[in-house]
Design a protein around this nucleic acid. Structure first.
Lengths: 166, 166
DNA sequence: CTAAGTGCAAATCTTTTGCAGAACG
DNA sequence: CGTTCTGCAAAAGATTTGCACTTAG
């Protein structure tokens, strides 16, 4: 999974597992071994990850607790739906991050080392709402990614690489 | 191509064709019939579009000026590189918009009708830069999409659809 | 001429889906 | 027990790529 400068975790009433259980019950769905195992694995660390990176960390086919990738993909969507995870697109793939128990934030994306840095900005939300209001637009959320070069990469003065995208 | 509330076009010294020609020359690449035709088609209107929508508007196989989709994809990337177009990800696909000759802006995305509304905000950029500065991050650009419901859709009180994503 | 560009078809990559058997409640 | 889930493999959708032929300069 990718490294990332992270924000503090918040106090929450329920554990992710409990919260997910509520979600499942409310929809007549079942608490299963793969789902439990995935929630556990994902919340065992704070990091951004995509489906593939998650699958890499899981037991392989044949080993105990193996989960097929179809189930991984299906579960990730449920977790987003349940409010456990957030997702967004980056360089073509879907990136997930912990949402439940973490404050709303945005990202700085270093195009050199591909690191995602989280940051909070109150005024950003205000500006967003003001702009939306001018268009009679009712905001439900937003996705902001600021591209650039992080402190570390800027320090080690390397020349721009071809991969510095978008 | 999708409808969109649009911003004014700016004054620019070169036409998109000329600008692209410069780009090609600077890299020892060639001005070809397909490339010329694509630039012409794309800049003939202001709209957001993806590769597939563009291909739909082009002549079919067998007709004059037909361009293979491989070439469409290849060219779109060149146009972005050349600064003619901008691109971003939306609902899984790559969306393009005219960049050369248009002011920098962000988007409101209506999750009901899928319309993209452009808006400008000076303070947004300032806020972005301030936040980035706190992390010693050198900004090269950003991508912001504000999700919600546009005036028209909010007016015609329809209930939320399943597709109201992220 | 000859390097760059194009069309075609096949290959990738990521994610989704149909289905038969497994497992919750 | 009746559903809901899962694993498997195949499908799908978007984009890329290898290659032989075409074309711009």
């Amino acid at each position: 999974m990718s490294s990332a400068e992270s924000l503090e975790r918040l106090e929450v009433a329920l554990t992710p597992q409990e919260r997910f259980e509520e979600y499942l019950q409310s929809r007549g769905q079942r608490q299963t071994k793969p789902r439990k195992f995935l929630v556990e694995t994902i919340f065992a660390q704070h990091a951004h990850f995509d489906a593939d990176e998650l699958i890499e960390k899981l037991p392989r086919k044949g080993e105990p607790d193996y989960v097929s990738s179809a189930t991984v993909y299906r579960s990730l969507r449920e977790f987003v739906d349940a409010g456990l995870l957030n997702s967004f697109q980056l360089d073509g793939r879907t990136v997930y991050e912990l949402d439940y128990g973490y404050p709303q934030h945005d990202h700085l994306y270093c195009t050199r080392c591909r690191k995602l840095i989280e940051f909070r900005s109150e005024s950003l939300v205000e500006t967003r709402d003001a702009a939306a209001a001018e268009h009679g637009f009712r905001v439900t959320g937003h996705r902001l990614i600021v591209q650039g070069v992080c402190r570390e990469c800027a320090g080690s003065r390397r020349k721009k690489r071809k991969q510095d995208l978008v």
